[in-house]
Design a binder for these strands. Structure first.
Lengths: 256, 256
DNA sequence: CCTCGAAACGCTCATATACAATCATTATAC
DNA sequence: GTATAATGATTGTATATGAGCGTTTCGAGG
């Protein structure tokens, strides 16, 4: 088997399973152990995977924006719940509205449910732009600025980003975590972009599966009081729900 | 077997299978190994295929998601010349420069040749953004505005599009036609976008295969005198060349 | 906490294949 | 007919692969 095909298969295997032993891969591609190891070393050098004793794992951070971004990996976690949340959140949108969609693994799932709503959508997320391009009934707006590869978003270093004239009824956004101190996000670049977008929308709707209430770490994007609605799944604890409602946040539970 | 027929068959083979070994191709076209390898080197230089140890694969730069759009259809005409023009035009760019790239079927072909030049690129073309995202050494800037599906570009209806602070040494653009009255473009939306971008660059470089000098129809984007350089192929007539040089335009002929 | 065995690993070498460079020959254009 | 380009064979070099062997790592059991 050719080298390129072998390596492609190895990467493919890793996209299915989080771990693969050298023997697994040997059976998969039919090469000798030495050859497999050479492939693994090369791929690890490229950052496409991480070597561990006994085999390989997915890497911590991948910069290839196709298969391996943190976003793509994150996407595989809780997909079912996230999709249900996305469907419910899309139900909160009226046909013909102008909305803002912030980039993220959860919000990307919104796109299929928005196709026929004749929306005007402002987003800084390139994956979302790509998906919504397929819905001819959606008008798409993007801010100007620099493209950040890791987050796959556009962010202007300046105040003026070409969207000054755009004002939306709602913004849909994701979160790293939701804690009493507010909405937490992992990345300071994301935070800058999101603050900018939030200023363009009247109501703030946050999509967050219930695991987001267990996490506590991140950078504070805004206090809970600035959030109007949180869409989550049935796994949310009474305590977390109480926390949100005390802060004046409407809680919507997505049905599977 | 003629050279052109051989190369056509090689490309045809690759459109069927994702990989072809040198021996496969040898059986296919009946030439010696050395000749096949020469063909492969040329085709790989043009970016039409990717060489791997043992044979060739399809290049990765195939934009799948807009098959069928006018742009995608246009792309198939004169690909070889256009790629040669793109390669030559890329040679006019210095490492580290800040440049503007206008969307279009010819300018899209530039991307593979720009990957390692550490450029800062401002473009309103989504396909170009997508391709250049794969080159981590390139900084990408986009203007803000609405996404126009047919042309696959971003265009702001307002003056301010978030790129006011960006000024480039060169703009690379395509054309519908080049006639004595000036550079012609087919679409009024394109014209608005291009005028905006031209204002951000010092030198104007136009990529136009020689068939563009036969056409006469379109909307005038600018007079020839505003163009600094035209990169074209050897098919340009003496008359057309004279027309350009009289207007003070430098003419560069791309080598195959 | 230490020891020990098995598995995993890296290294080196031998071999096979693929590749690039060169040169002589043939086809093609002018 | 000559000049130029294209082709094919040859030779040396580079790369890929698999096997052997000493070393390291891991985990179980004392």
């Amino acid at each position: 088997m050719r080298q390129s095909e072998r390596r492609r298969k190895i990467l493919g295997k890793l996209s299915e399973a989080p771990f693969a032993s050298v023997q697994d891969l040997q059976n998969l591609v039919g090469a000798s152990e030495a050859t497999i190891r050479r492939d693994l070393r090369k791929l690890a050098d490229d950052g496409a995977l991480k070597r561990v004793h006994g085999g390989v794992e997915r890497p911590e951070t991948q910069t290839s924006h196709l298969a391996g971004t943190p976003l793509a990996r994150n996407k595989q976690i809780n997909v079912v719940q996230k999709r249900a949340i996305a469907r419910t959140a899309a139900g909160l949108i009226e046909p013909g509205e102008t909305i803002v969609i912030d980039g993220g693994s959860t919000t990307s799932l919104l796109c299929p449910f928005l196709a026929d709503l004749d929306l005007q959508v402002l987003t800084n997320s390139l994956p979302i732009v790509e998906q919504l391009l397929l819905s001819p009934r959606t008008r798409l707006l993007v801010p100007g600025g620099e493209v950040f590869r890791e987050q796959n978003i556009i962010l202007s270093p300046f105040e003026e980003d070409g969207t000054a004239e755009c004002f939306a009824s709602k913004i849909l956004m994701g979160a790293q975590a939701l804690s009493p101190v507010g909405l937490l996000q992992a990345d300071s670049i994301l935070i800058r972009a999101e603050r900018r977008l939030m200023a363009r929308a009247e109501k703030v709707i946050v999509l967050a599966d219930s695991t987001k209430f267990e996490r506590k770490t991140g950078l504070v994007l805004c206090p809970l009081s600035e959030i109007d609605t949180v869409v989550t799944d049935a796994g949310i604890s009474a305590k977390s729900r109480n926390m949100l409602e005390k802060a004046g946040v409407e809680v919507v539970i997505a049905e599977d």
